[in-house]
């Protein structure tokens, strides 16, 4: 299974490599009026998943909570590999991938992206040390807490990267920051539902259900507020959302199904199922979050003023984008399986 996933994942990486070094940006569907597409959405998802998983790992490594011990190591591995593979994916998205290092060499300290990148690197270093040290003890406490804080830092900078965009009122709001954090926490507890734990399953289920409801209120609340707002960009993004299959995928798989599962049964199988359902649903939500902001160009008349590739607000990812994004997600799963053999021997309960 691991080998098969690795091969499929690498095929996706090859597609990304083809875009980077052979076909160039003519091979992708994002452009000028939808400058960020599927790859940015999946990158955002992987970064948020990383932050959420680090929260679960941090309960044990940082705070010594024994009830999270079983899930802590797999969560930390997932957190590391998810962030690690998000980097090449977003590099593939650059027009000049090899210049990506410029963010470290000549950063603009007024932009939030370089801060996020520094936090990624620091997080990876600290988390790998925690992982190597193994079980939680006094010596890992400090590093475990630092790792959690760094995850919080990169998530904060990522959310600010979107929240300060005055050109897109859909994002230009302080609510984006809690939205990112609640999404990360939800993903973290979804990961816990999948990996299981020896602790208080009732409490974990309650926390996950509460997070789902909170996130649902934020996402659906935003759509309702935007639909009833006068700025056309907000109105259009709400229309985009309700007519998008991704939004309804989020509602169905990221909210309704897991809530029903969590309320109806206590079995470990339904916990795992709800965890997977949340992961898929929130991936759809990230895609919708990124693309709905471009539902209306900066001027409604702009797309009809001049025609050409990329000068449109209609965006559908093509096979290269889908293949590469799926490849990196599958490779993350494969890397997790390669690096987390211990858990397999232990087995897991919800």
């Amino acid at each position: 299974m691991k080998i098969l996933l690795t091969i499929i994942g690498l095929a996706g990486v090859l597609l990304a490599g083809g875009k980077m070094f052979v076909w160039g940006d003519a091979a992708v569907n994002y452009g000028s009026y939808v400058p960020w597409g599927l790859w940015v959405a999946v990158y955002g998802f992987m970064v948020t998943l990383s932050a959420g998983s680090s929260l679960i790992a941090g309960f044990y490594y940082g705070f010594g909570r024994e009830e999270y011990k079983e899930a802590a190591r797999p969560a930390l591995v997932l957190s590391i590999v998810s962030l690690f593979f998000a980097m090449p994916l977003i590099s593939a998205d650059l027009g000049h991938p090899l210049r990506g290092m410029m963010i470290l060499v000549r950063p603009n300290v007024h932009a939030f992206l370089p801060w996020a990148v520094w936090a990624y690197i620091a997080f990876l270093i600290v988390s790998i040390i925690v992982l190597i040290r193994g079980d939680a003890g006094r010596d890992t406490r400090f590093l475990g807490i630092i790792s959690m804080l760094l995850a919080g830092a990169f998530l904060l900078f990522e959310s600010l990267h979107f929240a300060v965009v005055i050109a897109h009122p859909v994002w230009n709001s302080a609510i984006i920051i809690p939205l990112f954090f609640v999404t990360a926490d939800t993903l973290g507890f979804a990961v816990l539902a999948i990996f299981g734990g020896t602790g208080n399953a009732f409490m974990n289920r309650t926390i996950l259900s509460s997070l789902l409801i909170l996130l649902g209120l934020m996402v659906i609340g935003q759509v309702i507020v935007h639909a009833n707002s006068s700025p056309p960009e907000l109105h259009e993004s709400a229309l985009h959302a309700v007519s998008s299959p991704w939004f309804w995928t989020y509602i169905a798989l990221g909210l309704v199904l897991p809530l029903l599962l969590l309320c109806s049964s206590r079995s470990s199988f339904t916990m795992k199922l709800s965890g997977w359902s949340i992961l898929i649903g929130l991936l759809a939500e990230k895609y919708e979050f990124v693309t709905s902001a471009f539902a209306l160009a900066q001027f409604a008349e702009l797309p009809s003023a001049f025609h050409g590739p990329g000068l449109t607000v209609h965006y559908t990812p093509n096979i290269i984008e889908i293949g590469a994004a799926a490849g990196f997600l599958i490779l993350t799963m494969a890397a997790y399986m390669w690096l987390s053999p211990r858990r397999k021997r232990q087995g897991g309960t919800a």
Binding site: S32, Y33, G95, H96, R99, L113, I166, Q298, F299
Partner: peptide, 15 residues
């Protein structure tokens, strides 16, 4: 120097 991240495209209110 431009890395082609398109952050500026996203940030320009005038497109």
């Amino acid at each position: 120097l431009c890395i082609g991240c398109r952050t500026c495209l996203v940030n320009c209110p005038y497109g």
